[in-house]
């Protein structure tokens, strides 16, 4: 995979920036070039938050993600805003536990994933972001599971060991999801 770009978007507090950071760390550990660009400011306060990640074998020019290869949308407004930007043939994962009405997607492959419900059922409330990231990992192969585990260990502070395990389990759960 030479170039890969990703947008993760949702409500502030759903961990969209963190999920993007985990994806960026995978690229870092694999020795690739990577940029992570967050939305900042008023968007964070209860509104939408998003980040764009670019992964490449060569130095990254513009860090703005205007035509993503993949999208993770964790609420309706984010799906509406970013789905039309996804490259033809690209992939959009949407949390169908939160987004009840899936829009038409003539160009990108839109996959509804009941992420929030699944993590709640498994006692992993609050890490739907990681389940979706695991699903993305399986569908796109932007990295591999071993690297992802290592990346999460880098992102989660050592004093939050239980959070690390929770995150890894959610990624594995998403990776194992069929459909």
């Amino acid at each position: 995979m030479s170039d890969f770009s990703l947008i993760i978007a949702g409500f502030g507090g759903q961990g969209v920036l963190f999920a993007g950071k985990a994806a960026a760390y995978c690229a870092l550990l694999e020795g690739k070039e990577v940029s992570w660009l967050p939305s900042y400011g008023p968007e964070m306060r209860g509104g939408t938050a998003n980040c764009g990640v670019c992964i490449s074998d060569t130095p990254i020019g513009s860090p703005l993600v205007t035509r993503p290869h993949a999208l993770i949308a964790m609420n309706g407004p984010s799906l509406q805003k970013f789905l039309p930007l996804v490259m033809p043939g690209g992939l959009a994962l949407a949390d169908s536990s939160i987004i009840k009405q899936m829009p038409e997607s003539p160009r990108a492959r839109l996959v509804p994933v009941p992420a929030s419900d699944t993590v709640s059922r498994e006692g992993l409330g609050g890490v739907a972001n990681m389940l979706l990231l695991g699903k993305l990992l399986r569908e796109t192969g932007f990295s591999v599971m071993d690297t992802m585990r290592e990346a999460l260990a880098e992102c989660v502070p050592p004093r939050k060991k239980d959070m690390l395990e929770k995150n890894i389990r959610a990624v594995e759960l998403g990776f194992a999801l069929d459909g």
Binding site: V34, W36, L37
Partner: peptide, 10 residues
Amino acid sequence: DGLLGQMMEP
């Protein structure tokens, strides 16, 4: 600028 300040890179 804000973009360079906020973005992460290796």
